[in-house]
Computed example of a mutant assay.
Amino acid sequence: MRVLAALSGGVDSAVAAARALDAGHEVVGVHMALSRSRDQFRTGSRGCCSIEDAGDARRAADVLGIPYYVWDLSEQFEETVVADFLAEYAAGRTPNPCVRCNEHIKFAALLDKAVALGFDAVCTGHYARIEEAADGTRTLHRAADPAKDQSYVLAVMGPQRLARAMFPLGDVPSKDVTRAEAAARGLSVSAKPDSYDICFVADGDTQGFLRERLGSQPGPVVDSSGQVLGTHDGAYAYTVGQRKGLALGRPAADGRPRYVLAVEPVRRTVVVGSADELRVAGIDAGDAVWFDEPTDERDCHVQVRAHGDPVPARVRPLGDGRLRVDLVDGGQLRGVAPGQSLVVYDGTRVLGQATVTGTRPVAAADGSR
């Protein structure tokens, strides 16, 4: 097959490309330029789109002996990932930009361009497994290494995109094995630190980035009874479950910590309360993307954070991309925010993904069923 290897400049994508080459595929490397003003993105190893990364990707391609190109996807990235990030926070929701990047850039813009140029698949360094049945049907599964599993951020791709995806690192037992393999292959990125944080927030200050783009929007911080406890400079800088940065100046009456319970952008209000008030019994979600859509209520597991634990749940599709999730068998979640990605699993297999639209607190569970 003709395979386009997305080279981020990190160790994972370099080894993934090498494995695709070993498998006998014709491999071409490409680095995605996601900003025309490269100084907008951080240097060093915190992000995945730094100036150094482009050079590291080129050197990896040279070692592997494969062609290398840089594709300018900055316009699509700004119009989809960054714009969605700002719009979601402005609306009081909590987005996951890595999910949106996989949805709109890596497995949309990049894949569509690759297919148009005659490539059969896009290869990335994600840690996830693809299993193929005798009839050619493909299913997405968790990686062999639970600590590195990235199936959560890939669940949004859907079956058509999965058909042209390649994840050669899915069966790697640990990141140490990947690094050792990179060193053995002579790849200089073998000891490069992992990327983390949001690549387009250059200094790592997400609140500062939001404030610069959205401006000052002061409002009150209130408790669940409506009593004003303090003020803020922008409700968009807060997310459900947040504890730090409230700056209320006085403790709660019971002396316990306060957490953000809700963000109300229209009223520019942040509602805070106790940890108990964050407990969730059920979740409502929409814009579902399914690999295997349940036709009726189904017992499974759900996960609402990239590195969160899956919890037992009963999922009921409601039509129009909507679903209702009820936690069962003692499953517990806390601080689930609208905008988060909810991924549905059957064992290691990804069934689908949806975006959280609301939650049902434990205290209201009996009356809501």
Results as ranks from 00 to 15, higher is better:
residue 242 Q to F: 00
residue 242 Q to C: 01
residue 242 Q to M: 12
residue 242 Q to L: 02
residue 242 Q to K: 06
residue 243 R to I: 00
residue 243 R to L: 01
residue 243 R to E: 07
residue 244 K to N: 00
residue 244 K to I: 00
residue 244 K to E: 08
residue 245 G to P: 04
residue 245 G to N: 06
residue 245 G to C: 01
residue 246 L to C: 03
residue 247 A to G: 01
residue 248 L to E: 06
residue 248 L to K: 07
residue 248 L to S: 09
residue 249 G to A: 05
residue 249 G to Y: 11
residue 249 G to N: 05
residue 250 R to A: 13
residue 250 R to G: 01
residue 250 R to Y: 10
residue 251 P to N: 07
residue 251 P to W: 01
residue 251 P to H: 02
residue 251 P to Y: 00
residue 252 A to N: 08
residue 253 A to V: 03
residue 253 A to K: 07
residue 254 D to A: 04
residue 255 G to L: 08
residue 255 G to P: 09
residue 255 G to T: 10
residue 256 R to L: 13
residue 256 R to F: 01
residue 256 R to W: 02
residue 256 R to I: 00
residue 257 P to V: 06
residue 258 R to W: 14
residue 259 Y to F: 15
residue 259 Y to S: 00
residue 259 Y to E: 00
residue 261 L to E: 03
residue 262 A to Q: 10
residue 263 V to L: 07
residue 264 E to A: 13
residue 265 P to L: 08
residue 265 P to N: 06
residue 266 V to N: 06
residue 266 V to S: 09
residue 267 R to C: 11
residue 267 R to H: 15
residue 268 R to L: 12
residue 269 T to N: 11
residue 270 V to P: 07
residue 270 V to F: 11
residue 270 V to Y: 14
residue 270 V to D: 10
residue 271 V to D: 09
residue 272 V to Q: 06
residue 273 G to R: 02
residue 273 G to D: 05
residue 274 S to M: 05
residue 274 S to Y: 00
residue 274 S to K: 01
residue 275 A to N: 04
residue 276 D to H: 09
residue 277 E to M: 05
residue 278 L to T: 06
residue 278 L to P: 03
residue 280 V to F: 02
residue 281 A to P: 00
residue 281 A to L: 03
residue 282 G to P: 02
residue 282 G to C: 09
residue 282 G to S: 05
residue 283 I to K: 07
residue 283 I to C: 08
residue 283 I to M: 09
residue 283 I to Q: 07
residue 284 D to E: 15
residue 284 D to L: 15
residue 284 D to S: 10
residue 284 D to P: 01
residue 284 D to K: 13
residue 285 A to V: 02
residue 285 A to S: 13
residue 286 G to I: 10
residue 286 G to K: 08
residue 287 D to Q: 13
residue 287 D to T: 09
residue 287 D to R: 13
residue 288 A to F: 02
residue 289 V to I: 14
residue 289 V to A: 11
residue 289 V to L: 12
residue 289 V to P: 02
residue 290 W to K: 12
residue 290 W to V: 08
residue 291 F to V: 10
residue 292 D to W: 11
residue 293 E to G: 09
residue 293 E to C: 11
residue 293 E to I: 09
residue 294 P to I: 11
residue 294 P to S: 12
residue 294 P to F: 11
residue 295 T to K: 10
residue 295 T to W: 07
residue 296 D to T: 13
residue 296 D to I: 03
residue 296 D to M: 06
residue 296 D to F: 05
residue 297 E to V: 15
residue 297 E to S: 15
residue 298 R to C: 13
residue 298 R to F: 13
residue 298 R to S: 11
residue 298 R to P: 01
residue 299 D to G: 09
residue 300 C to T: 15
residue 300 C to D: 12
residue 300 C to K: 06
